[in-house]
Computed example of a mutant assay.
Amino acid sequence: MRRIAVIPGDGIGPEVTAEALRTLRAVAPDLEFDVLDHVNADRYLATGTALSDDDFARVASCDGALLGAVGDPRVTSPDYARDVLLRLRFELDLYINHRPAQLLHDRLSPLRDQGRRPIDCTVVRENTEGPYVGVGGALRVGTPHETAIDTEVSTYRGVRRAMEFAFARATRSVCLVDKANAVPHNGTLWQRCFREAAALRPDLPTRHLYVDAAVMLLVQDPTAFDVIVANNAHGDVLSDLTAQLAGGPGTAASANLNPQTGYALCEPVHGSAPDLAGTGRANPLAAVLSAALLLDCAGRAEQAERIRTAVRTVVRDLRCTADIGGSLTTSGAGAAVRDALHGE
């Protein structure tokens, strides 16, 4: 991976992305960047275009992408975010959402029991199927008989490749999370694919939990999990829970992957946070850690680990933003990470 597309986006996106890019340049000066800073809500409001075909072609021609955030309170239609995020996920076939959650420091955990705080797990979320594909519709809108239908879609191919990725990443165990007792047709397919994947890794402990039980156990003891695999909707919720257990959205990174092509689109999960935009209070660490994920996907594990080590150092030393115990600004926290890199 040599060339990376960058979409800073909206709200705090440009601020945190700038720190991530500076950090990437510090550890991997050979990388090249194609910055699409016009893909944002301002252009959408002015032209109605979220991501043009030319924009998509530029992103697709790169080896990977870094996204800041998409979303603006002035835009009331969901089409804007869908046309950027879901178009990239679906048309690049980024069928895995990879959400690692690792506690950076003991003080960041919301759990009282110290022995159960050190979460170190990954949610593998199928990223291109489920209820987010847009199959459905509405009848008699605006009347007392209004009916809304959204259909959950699972294919053998889609579920199988999510399982393959989950089992390839696991070192301690894999847990399938579903709601097969209430959604039996999708559940049956997921459980069959889970059994087939497990049969190829007889050395690896496996477990199945319904999503309500999984949520309770994650809060009770997140250290019980290694890799969790789930459909698009359940994985969406579970990965936000694991992010909070690991320190909150300010440190949560994610990768949208196609393991077959090697393409990765990495992004912080905190959203555009328009209330923080321009205040200097946005935490850049999720964007910086997303950049580290991008390096992982590029086979640059050593460079990625340098960034993560630097992040752990600044969090430990309280050289970070206020949301995780420090007092630095967005740019100050980014500079602290790079200082920690130089002081290795």
Rank of each mutant, 00 (worst) to 15 (best):
residue 95 Y to I: 11
residue 247 G to P: 14
residue 187 G to H: 02
residue 324 I to T: 03
residue 155 T to F: 06
residue 71 G to E: 08
residue 54 D to I: 12
residue 106 D to K: 14
residue 28 A to E: 12
residue 286 A to T: 10
residue 110 P to R: 05
residue 40 N to P: 13
residue 88 L to G: 07
residue 333 A to E: 01
residue 278 G to W: 02
residue 292 A to S: 08
residue 158 G to Q: 09
residue 332 G to P: 12
residue 150 D to R: 12
residue 245 L to G: 08
residue 332 G to M: 14
residue 58 R to N: 04
residue 279 T to K: 14
residue 250 G to N: 12
residue 237 V to E: 03
residue 203 D to H: 05
residue 154 S to P: 00
residue 11 G to T: 08
residue 256 N to V: 09
residue 193 C to E: 04
residue 56 F to E: 04
residue 331 S to G: 11
residue 149 I to M: 13
residue 251 T to R: 02
residue 125 R to L: 06
residue 298 A to T: 00
residue 293 L to C: 02
residue 92 L to W: 03
residue 275 D to G: 01
residue 64 G to K: 00
residue 199 A to H: 15
residue 18 A to E: 10
residue 32 E to F: 01
residue 143 T to G: 09
residue 55 D to H: 14
residue 113 D to T: 10
residue 42 D to C: 11
residue 325 G to T: 08
residue 274 P to A: 08
residue 187 G to S: 01
residue 142 G to M: 01
residue 126 E to W: 00
residue 68 G to S: 11
residue 113 D to H: 07
residue 198 A to P: 12
residue 138 A to F: 13
residue 137 G to E: 04
residue 151 T to I: 15
residue 233 A to Y: 10
residue 332 G to H: 12
residue 273 A to N: 07
residue 104 L to Q: 09
residue 173 S to T: 06
residue 263 Y to M: 11
residue 271 G to L: 04
residue 162 A to I: 12
residue 162 A to L: 12
residue 189 L to I: 04
residue 179 K to I: 15
residue 160 R to P: 03
residue 178 D to T: 15
residue 116 R to P: 06
residue 62 C to L: 06
residue 100 P to I: 04
residue 77 S to W: 13
residue 114 Q to M: 08
residue 6 V to A: 04
residue 109 S to E: 12
residue 21 L to F: 06
residue 225 F to T: 03
residue 112 R to W: 05
residue 303 Q to T: 05
residue 76 T to G: 14
residue 259 P to A: 05
residue 213 A to W: 03
residue 231 N to E: 11
residue 246 A to Y: 05
residue 296 D to I: 01
residue 124 V to E: 01
residue 39 V to I: 15
residue 247 G to C: 06
residue 291 A to K: 08
residue 208 H to F: 10
residue 99 R to M: 03
residue 226 D to E: 06
residue 249 P to G: 15
residue 327 S to V: 15
residue 36 L to A: 10
residue 244 Q to G: 14
residue 207 R to W: 09
residue 52 S to A: 11
residue 309 T to Y: 12
residue 177 V to K: 05
residue 14 P to K: 01
residue 136 G to N: 00
residue 181 N to L: 09
residue 304 A to Q: 05
residue 307 I to L: 00
residue 174 V to D: 10
residue 333 A to V: 10
residue 326 G to D: 00
residue 63 D to G: 08
residue 326 G to Y: 07
residue 121 C to Y: 00
residue 150 D to Y: 14
residue 113 D to N: 07
residue 97 N to V: 11
residue 207 R to T: 12
residue 266 C to T: 06
residue 118 P to M: 00
residue 289 L to N: 12
residue 32 E to S: 10
residue 247 G to V: 10
residue 108 L to D: 05
residue 235 G to K: 07
residue 138 A to W: 06
residue 84 V to T: 03
residue 87 R to L: 13
residue 247 G to W: 02
residue 52 S to Q: 03
residue 142 G to V: 06
residue 171 T to H: 14
residue 287 A to F: 07
residue 311 V to M: 07
residue 185 H to M: 14
residue 197 A to N: 08
residue 172 R to Q: 15
residue 104 L to W: 02
residue 68 G to K: 05
residue 205 P to T: 01
